Each structure stands twice: as C-alpha cells, then as structure tokens.
Simulated scan of single mutants.
Amino acid sequence: MTIAAPDSVRLDLTTVVDPADMPLLLTVEEAARQLRIGRTQMWRLVTTGAVESVFIGRLRRVPIECLHEYVTNLLANGGQRQKTAA
C-alpha cells in the first residue's frame, strides 16, 4: 500500500525555470524569491542600494543581473555585504 506525500512536501517543479526563460526585470517580491529571502529583507537591500533597481514609471524593478552581482559580491567578500558610503 502506497501513501502519497502531502502537497507541502512535494517538489514544486514550477519553481525550476530554464535560464533562457528568466525575465530581465523582476518585482522586488520575485527577486526575494530568487534569493530565497523575505520580502522585507529584499526591500532593505534595494533601498540601501546593496541590490540595484530601476524605475519604469512608478514601478520598481530589479534587473536579474543585479541579483547575480549581489551574490558575486557576497562570495568575493566572504559572505559579508560591502559597506556603502552614506
């Protein structure tokens, strides 16, 4: 007899995205999901300038390259965020 796992345990394959299908610009919430962090922490990174973002009209978007830059900088600094000049 086989018992199916609950939905919360199953791998959600909709989150696995082909890099060619990745959008160029993400909302702050989508960027947070990509980094696997909370929305509040992502907004903090964006507003402090740790992760660059752009405005299209009144909408703030995070270029996917800026997420890659942020992670690259984290790796280069031993996991520590660079201090930004105030």
Rank of each mutant, 00 (worst) to 15 (best):
M42R: 10
P6N: 09
R58E: 08
E29I: 09
E69M: 05
E30G: 08
V51T: 01
P19K: 02
P19S: 04
L74A: 09
Q41Y: 04
S53G: 04
L45N: 03
T14H: 06
A86K: 01
C66R: 04
D21M: 13
A20R: 04
N73D: 10
A50Q: 04
W43Y: 12
M1L: 11
V9R: 02
M22P: 00
R39E: 00
T48I: 03
A31W: 03
D12T: 00
G57T: 03
T2H: 08
E30T: 01
S53E: 01
A76D: 08
Q34T: 14
H68C: 12
L59N: 03
P19H: 05
A5I: 09
V62D: 01
M1E: 07
V9E: 10
L59Q: 06
A85M: 14
L45Q: 02
E29V: 05
L26Y: 08
R81N: 00
T40S: 11
I56L: 15
D18S: 13
V71F: 09
M42Q: 13
V51I: 15
Q82C: 13
L13K: 12
L75E: 14
L45C: 02
A32D: 11
K83H: 07
G78P: 00
L26N: 05
V71L: 15
Q82R: 04
L59A: 04
L24E: 14
G78L: 05
E29A: 15
R60T: 06
L74V: 08
V17W: 09
W43R: 10
V51W: 00
N73P: 00
G49C: 07
I3Y: 02
M1T: 03
L59G: 00
T27R: 10
G38R: 01
K83Y: 03
L26H: 09
T2Q: 07
T48G: 10
Q34E: 15
G78Y: 12
L59I: 06
T48P: 00
Y70V: 12
L26I: 03
E65D: 14
L67V: 07
Y70M: 12
T2W: 04
T14K: 13
Q82T: 07
L25P: 01
H68G: 10
S8P: 00
R39T: 02
E29M: 12
A32I: 10
V17C: 09
A86W: 06
D18I: 09
F55W: 05
W43G: 06
T48W: 02
E52Q: 06
E65K: 05
C66N: 08
L13A: 13
A5Y: 04
I3V: 07
I3S: 03
A20H: 10
